[in-house]
Design a protein around this nucleic acid. Structure first.
Lengths: 343, 343
DNA sequence: CTGTTAGCGCGTTCAG
DNA sequence: CTGAACGCGCTAACAG
């Protein structure tokens, strides 16, 4: 039994025509009054139309509007995986930023493989997204080149290829801050658990690590640097290697919280403690780091800012001039680092 | 400089009409041959049309198709948050299941508040989803009642309200398995870190805990049970309470891996070790549990199965008969549990 | 500011 | 099986 609200009950869903009739105006007027992109008119009729629409429970059919406008108001996000908390944080931030701009962010995952990234992009494009936010960029990424060539609006987030429009964290600075923190605490032999070399974020943090060392007059020793993926297991492996290879290591900088957590396991396994024997710094400040038995010192990344700027770039009317925007990270000192014991 | 593929270059995007012309058939034929819902015709023209479409790089305009079909092929997923790995796993599983059925899953988060859940549902519906998968159900959830009354297709996943169509894990069984495991190892004083009482999953696991205890002739002692949220911090708090309140506690079952991880902190803090002093079991088997310094014994939940069945229910032509489908969990014994030391 | 008109690209009648 | 014609609901262009 459908409820009767006094107006002629529309058969199925309420269309713009129902509203127009009920308000006694033309449907194009309704369309205009309800256009969220225009500054909302304060005229009496405008108010009445909005009220009637509200009462009737009218909601615009996005398929029809998208067809006509040539835009869907959806933006596609491509991330390696959502079970990586960093990427979940990025996506949630992008959702918030998109909502603020009356858009909606949909996501597809790639497991960090280029083939899946291509499929993800295709899927999202097929779904009609107005643009793409990619966090999977590699240096010399053919997918990105192709998108550019096809004229697909896109922006890189968190990771950059060094040339396309991007919104990232200042990884070099973050790496510097982390390493400098350890140096300031008196550490002299500081290992690095790096990330995959195809990720600009990992490379930047490595560069920052080197700069801090050099600036402090410390040697940049290849034996102190190990490359890992962004996984917990590979962090553990890397830490094991580093520990075995370097007598007297007291500081460790992992360019990712996950690898730091893996390193924690390896350190315990070796009969050592954090921070008593080894001071450890992570990167990203994922929620769990603050809640570990020994809360992890890490570098906080302002994902909300990165997301906001990414969308600003993507949705800008005319192409931006400065290609790569960098957001400032912050060091969060917690309990996994302490001043070195005096010899 | 647009490349010329020999056919008349369409101005903007390739439409169905371009394909029709290039293949020498009418556009309705093209539409039919390319309809993924129909069994694909093997006739020569069909093959030719598909080939031409492929060559021209034709992709169906989903807005136009959706407008005409009255369906978008999108399903909306509502979860508390994606930074909770459990929910990220659920959503990724739903994405895969949706893809298998030629659909696409979009997501919105609620921070586990009913008001945000309502907004999330509205947002998703406005975006034109064909149905909703909710993992935020509470017992007596007005939002769900409203969806039902409005005729919105929906299914509950992981958590159920006990009456609506749902696809969940068998939480009672999981709770039983976890507790039984501890009992089998000789533990007699087993604490429970429960979840919020509005979540059916938490309630089910609690019920399983009680059944295992009762079956073993052990008392169900209220002092051994603490309610927590699903967060790490609250898990730590709960464990502290339990430890302080119960002399001789040797076993602990946390109905969620996150709270188990929190408990870990509290246990260490109290100067105790896992599994030497306390055996600990979690729930969900999120990836990190296997990689902790002491890998966590936990209950694995088949999210892929839950997701597949959820979509089966949601996309079914006629309403299902059995309301609540339950997937079997599995106990994964790792290093956080061991036989009790003999007195 | 308002209304009229003309499609957006597609899927689905319906007649052949 | 095929094609012609219609219209899904909306917005843009235009005219008043």
């Amino acid at each position: 039994m459908a409820q009767d609200d006094g107006t002629k009950a529309p058969a199925g869903r309420v269309t713009i025509l129902d509203v127009a009739r009920a308000a006694g105006v033309s449907k194009s007027s309704v369309s205009r009054f309800l256009d969220e992109r225009l500054p909302k008119s304060q005229s009496e009729t405008a108010k009445r139309v909005r009220k009637v629409a509200e009462e009737l429970g009218y909601v615009r059919d996005v398929s029809a509007a998208s067809l006509r406008r040539g835009k869907t108001g959806m933006i596609g996000v491509i991330v390696p995986r959502l079970t990586d908390t960093v990427m979940a944080m990025l996506y949630e931030a992008l959702q918030r930023a998109a909502a603020r701009r009356q858009h909606f962010a949909i996501v597809a995952t790639t497991d960090d493989t280029p083939e899946a990234a291509r499929i993800a992009a295709e899927t999202l494009l097929q779904r009609g997204v107005d643009g793409l936010v990619l966090s999977t960029a590699r240096t010399e990424d053919p997918l990105i080149a192709e998108l550019a060539q096809r004229g697909v609006a896109h922006v890189l987030a968190v990771r950059t290829d060094g040339k396309s429009l991007s919104s990232v964290g200042d990884d070099e600075m973050g790496g510097y801050l982390a390493t400098r923190h350890l140096i300031d605490l008196g550490h002299r032999k500081i290992g690095l658990i790096g990330g995959p070399s195809y990720a600009s974020s990992a490379l930047g943090r490595l560069a920052g690590y080197k700069r801090a060392l050099t600036e402090a007059g410390l040697p940049v020793d290849p034996a102190l640097m190990v490359e890992a993926s962004f996984s917990i297991t590979s962090g553990a492996d890397a830490a094991r290697t580093l520990l075995a290879r370097n007598e007297g290591l007291t500081g460790l900088f992992a360019v990712n919280d996950n690898t730091a957590i893996g390193a924690l396991s390896a350190i315990h396994e070796a009969g050592l403690s954090v921070p008593e024997d080894i001071s450890l710094v992570g990167y990203n400040d994922i929620p769990i780091t603050a809640k570990l038995p020994v809360p992890l010192t890490t570098v906080h990344v302002p994902f909300d800012q990165i997301a906001t700027e990414a969308l600003e770039i993507l949705l800008a009317d005319e192409p931006d001039t400065d290609n790569i925007r960098k957001a400032m990270p912050t060091l969060i000192p917690r309990k996994s680092t302490r001043a070195i014991k005096q010899a």
